[in-house]
Amino acid sequence: MSEIIKVQGLSKVFGQHTVLKDIDLSINSGEVTCIIGASGSGKSTLLRCINLLEDPTGGQILFHGQDILTGKLNIPTYRSKVGMVFQSFNLFNNLNVLDNCMVGQIKVLKRDREAAKAQALKYLDKVGMTPFINAKPRQLSGGQKQRVAIAREIAMDPEVLLFDEPTSALDPQMVGEVLTVMRNLASEGFTMAVVTHEMAFARDVSNKVAFMSDGVICEEGTPAEIFTNPHQPQTREFLARFMNS
């Protein structure tokens, strides 16, 4: 498995508050990496640092062995290769569903309209949103928005897809429809890093699970290791609380 992204000794400090401490994590090609942990443990901040939406305070983020924090790399180009799906969907409110999936391809990747449209339609079909290409985001349900957001990202042909709690703002039924899409992507071999509270998804779909607590990766391993035989007391406590609820 080749490493696409390797995070080394990453730290992030907001004022006096240390959110991430000395994080090491690698995201391998074709693998699904799930990051679990309590709210406020730094999971989302880690993901946002990887996409440079937050400026890391220290450490390295290597993209194919090249450090992206040196300032020498073109950041927009890097971001276009690392897709991100947000908890709050963040579809472009001024554009309809089809244009949402085309604008990045046309403006960033400089594809021509026809190619962009074909690509957008292909992936909208994959997430089951083809009938809604003319709708504006405000006319869609949360689950539909998130599926469009996923299609928008994969239409850019990214090397990695980052998911920042993609189902946390949805009701149980919509969670199901979004997770189905994500399971399909995983089975097709998309490289994904997923911050989630969906333990069943993490257990069944991921190749690797990282448990975060208080800004550090407390434990990391295969789903079997983490879910059936966790070594750290914090991991055990967290999972016990989750499995009982």
Binding site: N51, Y78, R79, S80, K81, K107, V108, A149, R152
Partner: peptide
């Protein structure tokens, strides 16, 4: 969030 998702797909500030 609109700015963040635009940046996340690789748009520059101007775009």
């Amino acid at each position: 969030g609109q700015t963040e998702s635009a940046k996340a797909i690789g748009m520059t500030h101007g775009q």
